[in-house]
Amino acid sequence: MQLNIQNETSRLRAVVLGTAKSNGPVPKIEEAYDPKSIEHIKAGTYPEESAMVTEMESVAKVFEKYDVKVYRPDIIKDYNQIFARDIALVIEDKFIKSNILPDREKEIKAIQYVIDQIDPDKVYKAPSEAIHFEGGDIMVHNDHIFIGTYKGDDYSDCIVARTNMKGVAYIQSLFPNKIVKEFDLNKSMKDPRDNALHLDCCFQPVGNNKAIIHKEGFRDVLDYEYLVNLFGNENLFHIDKNEMYNMNSNIFSIAEDVVISEKNFTRLNTWMRSNNIIVEEVPYAEIAKQEGLLRCSTMPLIRD
């Protein structure tokens, strides 16, 4: 397999899509990794497996419509394998295994059959457990690589901080010719409306040099202003706290002019259509209860 990912929006040809089958029982509060899941566990509204399977199959049907090759993980019994973006990423022709929460190591083994189709010289794993990064924090945008991180002193105690500055440096070492720009994100284990779990929870390029952004997701206003200057304020769709909470920035592009989005994102979907983007609407509100959406559950392998 010849990998190729240069940005977030070029025509998609092959992708890993997670699975909600055999997702396991509702986790205990102490087993949850994010405040939104905890909120739904406490409220008794944590999503049911059958609903999540249906939602993910609706995405698979959209990929089929656009002739995208879809790989699904091998099923691990009673295990959450929805968020394929967390476990690895592709930049250019390199497949990079994430250094993720130790409890989730099994997930990468469930796509080993995909990795086996890639040139072993193009498969990378960070050399140290002290190097942390997950795919949701990393976006390639042509000559840029954007990386979400957390620079707070309490990083080691912050379970919602998934990418550290050592992770940023590691990615930089693999792509010395790219502009690697890190963004210090707001984190909260208490309130999901104040928690940018990954960069794609508060920012994502879409269409032709446009992007969705949540200003309050950034700890440093200069990071936000960097993106305003790069894209142009007129090309940014600003989302509020509730829209971030509902994961409006976590849509997924099949092409510059085709996007998969949640059907309830009325304001966003209207804006995209006004910019000549075809919006394929799917139900994904149940999966969103785990603080992840369409980008989180997909890991692109090949774009034109």
Rank of each mutant, 00 (worst) to 15 (best):
K21Y: 10
E8W: 04
P205Y: 04
R303A: 04
A84P: 02
A211M: 05
E234T: 13
R267S: 12
S188G: 10
V68G: 06
I179A: 12
N4W: 08
A161H: 02
V15N: 05
K77G: 05
A126R: 07
F265T: 07
A14M: 08
L17A: 00
K97D: 05
F231L: 03
N229G: 13
K151D: 03
R219H: 03
F252R: 03
P47L: 02
F252P: 07
R273K: 15
N7I: 14
A110F: 05
N208V: 14
C202F: 01
M52C: 14
P25S: 15
I5E: 03
D184L: 01
N276T: 12
E31T: 06
Y226W: 12
M299R: 02
V90M: 07
D143R: 08
D116R: 00
I251R: 06
S58G: 05
T19M: 00
P205W: 05
L236F: 04
T298H: 05
P102G: 03
E225C: 07
L185R: 08
Q290E: 13
E48R: 13
N177R: 14
I118P: 05
H40A: 04
V258N: 00
R13Y: 08
F133R: 01
S173W: 13
K263G: 02
G232D: 08
A288V: 14
E234F: 04
F133D: 10
M165L: 15
G167V: 09
G18E: 01
Y33Q: 04
I100V: 11
I82V: 14
Q2I: 08
G232W: 08
P176I: 14
E107H: 10
N235A: 13
M299K: 08
D184F: 00
F203D: 05
L268A: 08
E39Y: 12
R303Q: 10
D103R: 11
I91H: 02
L197Y: 11
R219E: 00
R219C: 04
M165Y: 06
G136H: 09
V140F: 00
Q6E: 15
L101E: 09
E105V: 11
P47I: 07
D220Y: 02
F203G: 03
N99H: 10
A43I: 11
N195G: 08
K181R: 15
K178Y: 14
E225W: 06
G135E: 06
K125A: 12
D257H: 13
R303W: 09
H144N: 12
V90I: 11
S253M: 07
V140G: 01
I82K: 04
P27K: 10
I29Y: 07
K178C: 14
D74Y: 09
M165P: 01
N99V: 06
